[in-house]
Design a protein around this nucleic acid. Structure first.
Lengths: 221, 221
DNA sequence: AAACATTTGTCCGTATGTATA
DNA sequence: ATATACATACGGACAAATGTT
């Protein structure tokens, strides 16, 4: 595995960035509960920082939709609305599908091999019922495709949507089915055949089925 | 025209927000040139504010892709790469298309009337060769659809993409063709027929043609 | 190579405005 | 309704880091 070439950005981790990462992680995994009030003074003390980088991090989290700021009043973690999957997945499907389409002509042999290898690990994680790893590997799989699509707008938008998916997962609103692995194989096949329309279509199917599955689960509750 | 119900958010315009709006406007219309170095001290003086709200605004602009921050070194306005339309329009088309699909079953009679009225003004602006107004009205048209789709993720993502489109327009990389108005009518018709697939398809066509038009223009340069 | 000038990142104090008693 | 407590938004100062001479 090649070491990610950090040539561009992270020269040194600034206090704001480390605060952002830590707080986002805490919000996603539920350490900071939905609706919890966030007092910059307290957070600053908890992270051994001053209030400024905390405030800056909170503002970035607000843009991402993890935090809600009421100027002059309060700052809270946003609610986790389980039905939010219904808002989240359609654009996720549309953008992933587009990414697959755009990536198709750009794949190298290494990319394709990497996709197969990743899906192998995905199958294994599913078999072992290791839901957390399955989600992480599924994200790796899609990340390869998004990287190949090489479109910064799609990239950042999907990153944001994925973060919300991850949060819903931690709040037990999402599980991945076994059918995903077969669909992944179909997607890889479309890539190898250099068929962008079919790749896009299969990718859409992959996510739409996920939506349907989750809707069914929701009806049982 | 109904007054926007600001019920939710803007109780009072905070200094950070006014700085953000002003700076974004300056970047979009070219007052702040691409690659221009932004010194927070100078901006603070220009806007009669302290550095803090300026810095906060700049960080939000970085997330939006209008500013690039090199920690410890400098912060600059991002370049305007005219070829960036090729990155920008595909996801814009995909999301607008999705918005049209999702909005179809939700339209009220007033919405549909508003769409027709807006397209009427669009036609007029095109006839008068008022490119700037045409762009603004085109945005209004699509905004009605996005609002009806009622999906916060799609909403914010499209807002961001539109802002970049606007910036490219100001840098003379985009013009709207006359064919758009006819396609708008087709889209409205699909809405009235409650046909989400056709609405999505027509919306996609509308944007893909825009992409093709721009590609042609690019080849002439 | 070393000291300087600039600009950024961070800290903390203060005042305005909000909620609670 | 008034007063009290408190959190936020903003300001200004200091320090670390970078590029320059």
């Amino acid at each position: 595995m090649p070491i990610p070439t950090n040539h561009a950005k992270p020269v040194r981790l600034t206090a704001k960035e480390s605060a952002f990462q830590q707080l986002q992680q805490w919000i996603i995994d539920g350490t900071l509960q939905p609706e919890e009030k966030l007092v910059d003074t307290d957070l600053a003390q908890a992270l051994n920082l001053s209030r400024t980088p905390i405030r800056e991090a909170l503002q970035l989290l607000e843009v991402q939709g993890f935090v809600e700021m009421f100027p002059g009043k309060a700052t809270r973690v946003t609610k986790v609305v389980k039905d939010d999957v219904e808002n989240l997945l359609p654009p996720l499907a549309a953008l992933q599908s587009l990414a697959a389409q755009l990536a198709t002509p750009k794949f190298t042999a290494e990319d394709l091999a990497s996709l197969s290898e990743t899906n192998g690990r995905f199958i294994q994680a599913i078999e072992e019922k290791d839901d957390f790893n399955a989600l992480k590997i599924d994200e790796e799989f899609h990340q390869i495709i998004v990287d190949a699509a090489d479109n910064p707008y799609i990239h950042t938008m999907l990153d944001r949507l994925q973060a919300h998916v991850r949060r819903l997962f931690f709040h037990n609103a999402i599980i991945l089915g076994e059918r995903s692995s077969e669909e992944h194989e179909e997607i890889i096949k479309a890539f190898k055949q250099k068929n962008p329309e079919r790749a896009a279509e299969m990718m859409r199917t992959n996510w739409v089925r996920t939506i349907d599955d989750l809707t069914l689960i929701g009806q049982n509750n």
